[in-house]
Design a protein around this nucleic acid. Structure first.
Ligand code: MN
Ligand code: MN
Ligand code: MN
Ligand code: MN
Lengths: 224, 224
DNA sequence: GGTTAAAATTAGTCTAACCTAAATTAGCTT
DNA sequence: AAGCTAATTTAGGTTAGACTAATTTTAACC
């Protein structure tokens, strides 16, 4: 447990954390799909991660995995680095928010504790990354924000965007162009019954955007 | 040649460059020693690097290796990243010059072309790293400074330090404490005949330091 | 309760990079 | 010229982490 985990294992644990953070287990096929690795390889790795001392996941055949406490801490450690890097690249090196995820996916594995703390300090100990995701603090405590998916907001209600999906650069460029970034005030104007498409008013610009249900499910709002 | 080389290979090429930059070839045992890898493994890798398309080294059994042009460019690319990172950590994140080599040894492999150019710009396109080593420019052109080793300076002569050894943190902390950094003005007061130990006057502080011949051989001076 | 499709696992390979032990070669000394 | 030693190479093996193909299990449906 003391020695560094391999970059591959770090990515597995991080992904399991992301999949299970809203409850439940991570399945072999979910991991295979999102990590871009064959299901057979994932099974292999999950069995290995469940047999380490201490184990990082609890694994039962055909039942998917959950993180153990050791696994959760390892995942939060790398998640903290990932999000600090994203924030740093935007704040200090002029990156746009669609460029940072890919960079952070690599750099997170090359970051020493010293670099982590220097970057944290240089940013003034930030609590959220450019996409609105919370950054675990140095003790790996993570703030649970209470939010609701845009797709569940009642029609007519006002809200503030707290979080957007962070992986797909195309989506991020689109959202950025619309002004749909964390902190933006919006009002849900309408939701069509048939396909659940939403019309959203962006208060700052007065413009109206159309958001489909799958994207709307990945955007978080705090009601106001 | 287009695809990225592995971190291991990058380190091999960088080390071959460093060893051969003052002419000659790099031997298996030199590489094994300085990379901390067994000689058998080094032989293996050298044979592999000589059989790629294009080859990165010219290898003849028992004769050591030299870099090909492709190998030289690959080495300079990673050396540029290494030195940019070192400079950035010192300038922007408050690192001391003895802490940066180890960090850069890892980060150099995780640096994208975009990050490289952003850091380069943020630093104002620097030409030397914290230890006085030249940073290849974006086209991998590297400036050949004319310098002489401190151990070859004539007694009584004045000079400016241009470069110090960069790997050993202990040595660097000692040099830093003495004020022996690139740019420092010195005068060589004496060299004992028997063991070639040197007495060096640091003009800025007026203090005197004793430098042994092996360290003196790794410190470069431009005569003034 | 049996059929079936999807999901997961097992079995068998592969590559990159390392290792140790054994064999060979180069280069120096007598 | 032969012998010795240090350097190098070869041979054989390991580990991490991936792959494909074949098999097994689950879960849903009739
Ligand atoms: Mn990653
Ligand atoms: Mn993010
Ligand atoms: Mn390196
Ligand atoms: Mn340096």
């Amino acid at each position: 447990m003391t020695q560094e985990l391999s970059p591959n294992i770090q990515d597995y644990l991080k992904r399991i954390y992301e999949i299970t953070s809203s409850g439940g287990k991570a399945s072999t096929s979910q991991l295979a799909e999102t990590l871009g690795i064959s299901a057979a390889s994932v099974t292999n790795m999950l069995q290995k991660l469940s047999k380490t001392q201490p184990p990082y996941v609890t694994y039962q055949k055909h039942q998917g995995v959950k993180l153990t406490e050791a696994g959760r801490l390892a995942a939060l450690k790398i998640l903290r680095r990932h999000r600090l890097i994203e924030h740093y690249l935007v704040q200090k090196l002029g990156y746009t928010w669609d460029e940072v995820h890919q960079e952070a996916e690599i750099l997170e594995h090359a970051m020493s504790p010293l670099l982590e703390s220097r970057i944290d300090a240089a940013l003034g100990y930030p609590t959220v990354d450019p996409h609105g995701d919370p950054i675990p603090d140095a003790d790996l405590a993570i703030s649970g924000v209470d939010h609701i998916a845009l797709s569940r907001l009642a029609v007519g209600k006002h809200g503030t965007i707290t979080r957007v999906p962070h992986e797909d650069p195309q989506v991020l460029r689109y959202l950025g162009k619309c002004g749909l970034h964390p902190g933006a005030q919006i009002q849900l104007l309408a939701r069509t019954p048939y396909d659940q498409t939403m019309r959203v008013l962006i208060l700052e610009s007065g413009e109206e955007v159309v958001i489909g249900p799958s994207l709307g499910g990945q955007i978080d709002i705090s009601e106001t």
